[in-house]
């Protein structure tokens, strides 16, 4: 199997982010244990991406600390953190004609000194990562020309190539079709790394998260196993939707069906929604 680092404990301690007088993240505390997968969910603007940015050192929290195995990530050199924690982001390389291989090879940067080339190990790690995301045959293709889903998979492959024990993933299933959504998350699970994954799809979050952490207006409003957290009451409060939660008979995983606005739980006598 692929070389990943030792899964670490990732902990946010009273993290707040204030930008332009607005508190985007307020007093957030949570912990992801070694090898645990936590799904971070919440409505648009809840502060999911902002919170994640403080974890991979793109945004310094206004107050509070981010700890990786007890060590403040904002006090360690960037390269050292990058060997232990990788991020899968929405941001993609622009119009520079990088190949898929080039983009994935960036994952090896934290291990390299100036003037040090890629050796056979690096090349194998890069190709393995591409292989496991099902994009190895695109290695020579220009990254720009890929479909949204293929790009997303290459960016996950780059995080794999980084060989870290911890991963932060911001909407890694965006643009992916159903099969590749499952594949991508399955891949992360199979690695056994510590992971925090921001997800929009609550059913995916329930299926893949050991625990779910719900963020609303910058605050953590619930944390716990999917079945305990994803209740109609919470969905009503956080998303302002009426939802039905039932347990999948085969897996026991909570399944959520959302009632469209203006429809009651039972349709009118003519089978059409009431006006």
């Amino acid at each position: 199997m692929r070389e990943t680092g030792t899964p670490a404990t990732l902990r946010a301690e009273k993290v707040s982010v204030v930008i332009g007088g607005r508190a985007l993240v307020q007093d957030v505390t949570f912990q992801v244990g070694p090898g645990e997968v936590v799904a971070l969910v919440g409505p648009n603007g809840a502060g999911k991406s902002t919170l994640l940015r403080t974890l991979y050192r793109a945004l310094r929290p206004t107050s509070g600390r981010v700890l990786l195995d007890g060590e403040d990530v904002w006090r360690m050199p960037g390269r050292r953190l990058a060997r232990r924690l990788a991020a899968v982001l929405q941001e993609t390389p622009g119009e520079f004609d990088l190949t898929v291989y080039d983009v994935t090879a960036m994952g090896r940067t934290p291990y390299k000194r100036a003037f040090q080339g890629d050796d056979a190990d690096d090349r194998r790690i890069i190709m393995d990562a591409l292989e496991s995301l099902d994009v190895a045959d695109l290695a020579e293709a220009p990254f720009d020309r890929l479909s949204g889903g293929e790009k997303q998979r290459v960016l996950i492959a780059r995080a794999l190539a980084q060989g870290t024990g911890t991963m932060v993933l911001d909407e890694p299933t965006n643009h992916l079709d159903m099969r590749h959504q499952l594949d991508a998350l399955q891949q992360v699970r199979r690695l056994g790394v510590t992971a925090i994954v921001a997800l929009h799809d609550l059913n995916l979050a329930a299926a893949f998260g050991d625990r779910i952490c719900v963020l609303n207006a910058g605050r953590v409003v619930a944390t716990g196993p999917p079945a305990a957290v994803l209740t109609p009451a919470l969905l009503e409060e956080v998303y302002r939707v009426t939802a039905d939660v039932h347990s999948d008979p085969r897996t026991g995983i909570p399944q959520i069906s959302v009632m469209p606005y203006g429809r009651s739980a039972s349709p009118g006598a003519d089978g059409r929604p009431p006006k």
């Binding site: 940015r53 991979y56 050192r57 793109a58 050199p77 960037g78 390269r79 050292r80 953190l81 990058a82 060997r83 924690l85 990788a86 991020a87 982001l89 941001e91 993609t92 390389p93 622009g94 520079f96 990088l98 983009v103 960036m106 994952g107 940067t109 934290p110 980084q162 932060v168």
Partner: peptide
Amino acid sequence: LAGEEAAASLGLN
């Protein structure tokens, strides 16, 4: 080339 945030996450100041 990968972008500001991605570069930061890969250890670059």
